[in-house]
Amino acid sequence: MKERVLITGASGFVGFHLISEAIKNNLEVFAAVRKSSKTDHLKVFDIKYTYPDFINVQALKAEILENKYDYIIHAAGVTRARSQHEYNHINAAYTSNLAQAVVDSGVALKKFVLISSLAAIGPLNSLNGIINEATSPNPVTAYGRSKLLGEENLKSFSSLNYTILRPTGVYGPRDKDIFILFKQISKGIEPYIGNIEQKLSLIYVTDLATAAVKALYAGNKKAYILSDGNYYSRYEIGNISKEVLGRKTIKIHLPVIFVKLIANIAEKFSSLSNKAAVLNIEKLNELMAINWYCDIEPAKTDLGFNPLHNLRSGVTETLKWYKANNWL
C-alpha cells in the first residue's frame, strides 16, 4: 500500500511540480484545492482531490482522520495581499491551523514539510557575505514577515516532526511572475529598476519539488535554504533569455523615483478596488535588494539535495515550455 501525502496549494505553479515529483516517488497524492480552483492542468495525474477549510481546525481534523495521511507538504499561501493582516491570515494562521489539526487528530504523521521562503530571512545589505543558517531574520516585506510567522507557528508544535524549506526566487514552467520579464524580453524590451549591482539567487521549480519530497524523509525539525547554489548579476536572466529566444533588446533602466511613484499609485488603486497590487513600495525592497546569495550546503548534506539546473539550463527549459504552450 502506497504512503499518502497531502499537498496543499496543489493547483498552483509550485503545487503542480510537487504532485509530479511525489507521484514519481510512488506516493499516493491528495491534492488540496479550493472548489473554485482551476484544475484542468492536473488531469494528467492520478490523484485524489480534497477541499480543506483552513480556517476550521475541527474540519481539518476530520479530514486528517478520514484520510490518515503519512505526510503533508504545505505549499498553500499568497504572494500578493492587501495588508499584513491578510498575509498573516493565509500564510501563517493556515499553517498553525493545519498543524493544530494534525496534533488534535492523533494521526501519526511522519513529516510536515512547510514551503516557506528566503523572504522570511530577507536580503543582505552588502555585496559581501552570504545568507546562511546563522543569518538573523530581517524580512523586508509583509510577505516575508508572514512567512517567518508561519515558520514560528509551526515550530511551536513540539510534538510535530517538521522540515521548513526556504527557497529563493522560484521559476520554471507555469510560473506567471518571472514570466512577465520573459514576455517583455520577447518583445525586445529589457526593463530594470535603477542601475545598481546585485547578487541574485534562483531555483528551478523541479529542483524545489525534489527537495520537498526528500525532506519528507530527512532534516527533522530544521529549516533549510534552497537555491541552485550560485549567484547571478541582475543582467544574466536577460542575457540568457535573449540567446535562447534569438532576440535583441533595448535595455531600459527605469528611475527608482519613477517606479516608486507607480508603486504608490498601484497601492492606492488596490485599496479602492479591493484587489492586491502586483507592485507596491515594499515589493521594491525585495526587487532592489543588494544581496540574495545564499548557502545551501546544509540542505545538500542533510537532505541529499543536489540541484540539477543552473540558471542557463533552467531558463532554457522554461522558455521552451512557454513557447511550446503558446505563452510566448
Rank of each mutant, 00 (worst) to 15 (best):
N56E: 10
N274V: 14
H89F: 13
N285P: 10
W321G: 05
F45W: 03
A142I: 01
I55K: 11
N326T: 07
K221L: 13
H41D: 04
I72L: 01
A101H: 02
F157W: 04
I250F: 13
N67Y: 05
D70I: 01
T318I: 05
E317D: 15
K61I: 06
F13E: 01
L165A: 04
I262V: 15
Y293P: 10
E297R: 13
V107T: 12
A289I: 11
S227V: 12
K24D: 09
H74K: 01
S11Q: 04
L303M: 12
E66D: 10
S201D: 03
K111F: 01
N138W: 08
D46I: 07
I7N: 00
K248R: 13
H89A: 14
I115D: 00
V29K: 02
Y49M: 02
I281Y: 13
F305N: 04
A93W: 01
L254N: 07
E63R: 01
L303Y: 09
N274C: 15
G15N: 02
A277Y: 07
S186V: 09
N230A: 10
V103H: 06
Y293Q: 08
I196L: 10
A211H: 01
R312M: 14
V213M: 08
S146F: 05
L200R: 15
L181K: 06
D302A: 14
L303R: 02
D207A: 09
T50K: 07
S159A: 07
L202N: 04
G106L: 13
H253R: 11
V256D: 03
S36K: 08
T301Y: 13
Y49S: 00
E190M: 08
E297M: 13
S136T: 15
N125Y: 15
T163A: 03
A119R: 08
N264C: 12
E267D: 11
R145T: 09
F13C: 02
K222E: 15
I262N: 02
V113N: 03
T39D: 00
Y49H: 03
T301H: 14
E297P: 04
H89S: 14
S233K: 08
I250D: 03
N88F: 09
L226V: 14
K110Y: 06
Y217S: 10
M1Y: 09
I203C: 07
T135G: 02
I290F: 13
K248V: 08
I90R: 01
T206L: 08
S116H: 09
R234P: 03
I265F: 13
